[in-house]
Computed example of a mutant assay.
Amino acid sequence: MSPADTLLVLASLWLVAVLTPGPNMILFMAVGLSSPTASIIALAAAIVLGTFLWGLAGLFGLFWLFELFPAAAMAVKVAGGLYLAWMGFGLIRRNLAPAPETAREPAAMLTPRRAFLTGLATALGNPKSLVFVSSLFAVTRLAEQPLAIGLAGVGVMIAMSTLYYVVLGVALRTLPFARRPGATGRVLAMGTGLVMMAYGGKMAWER
């Protein structure tokens, strides 16, 4: 298979992966409906960065590290899950507190910094992502291609993920209640926290 065919097959398979609902997508949708635009951008950047790092790990065959040291994979997954759940709990707790009368925004949506850290923890906190990427590279034989082609494949993954989250983010911000402060924003923020706690607990509990 030529390098062009390899990249085309990779793009087709990655498109399916990007469109399949998972922790990254659900977290992004929740934050997109409840937090400022800067936080959405920060979250998208974190998810794309996580994709980039898992892509490089799959390209350079780092999957063998988790095979040799399964305890390390478990530690990463548990730590990522617990961090995500803790961030979700904090978001709920702050939005349950009475908002100051002078506040013009719902108390404690995700700040850009928190959105970035939470997104990165979600993206990197699941070693199954490396298993999937490694399998994808094995099916397409991308790792057998010259390094430049392998890096191009990772670039395709990054470009497609970035485009997807840009389109999804713009679509979410067009919804009227996504930009409205007040009780609606607080409810959406607490919903974000519940999603984070649910997925964090799932990530930490699964074996």
Rank of each mutant, 00 (worst) to 15 (best):
L172Y: 02
V167C: 08
F63L: 12
T184H: 14
A44T: 15
M109R: 07
L151E: 03
L84Q: 14
L43M: 14
P112F: 05
A121P: 01
L15S: 15
G50F: 06
L96R: 03
V78W: 10
G50N: 09
F137Q: 08
L33M: 13
R180M: 13
A171Y: 12
L56A: 07
D5H: 15
E206P: 03
G125F: 01
A183S: 15
T162H: 11
A138T: 10
V139A: 04
T118P: 00
G185S: 01
M25L: 12
L151D: 03
I149P: 03
F28G: 01
V187S: 14
G200H: 12
G80P: 07
L147V: 10
L27R: 02
M87W: 12
L62Q: 10
A138N: 12
T102M: 09
M190Q: 07
L43E: 13
T6S: 14
G191R: 01
L15V: 13
L120M: 07
L33H: 07
G153S: 04
G22I: 03
G191D: 01
P127Q: 09
S129F: 02
P127S: 10
A79L: 13
L7A: 07
G55Q: 09
L33F: 10
G201D: 08
G182A: 00
F69A: 11
A4S: 00
V139M: 03
P127C: 09
R186K: 06
E206G: 05
S2N: 09
S134F: 04
L56K: 08
A45M: 08
L33N: 06
F116G: 05
V166K: 05
M197P: 05
L147M: 14
A183Q: 14
L15G: 14
L124K: 06
G169V: 06
D5M: 15
V166M: 07
T51H: 08
T6N: 12
L147Q: 13
R141E: 10
W86R: 06
L117T: 07
V78D: 09
A79H: 12
A45I: 09
Y83A: 05
S161N: 04
L68D: 05
P98H: 14
V76T: 05
L68W: 03
L27D: 03
L56Q: 05
V131N: 13
P98M: 13
F66A: 03
P23W: 00
W54M: 04
P176T: 06
L19V: 09
P146Q: 04
E67F: 15
P127W: 09
G81T: 02
V133C: 11
P127K: 11
F52I: 09
R114I: 11
A17M: 15
L82N: 05
V195G: 06
W205T: 13
L151H: 07
W54P: 01
M157Y: 09
A85C: 04
T51N: 11
F66L: 04
R93P: 11
G22N: 01
G200L: 09
G185N: 00
V31E: 05
Y164E: 03
A204G: 00
A73D: 01
R113M: 08
L19I: 08
V18K: 07
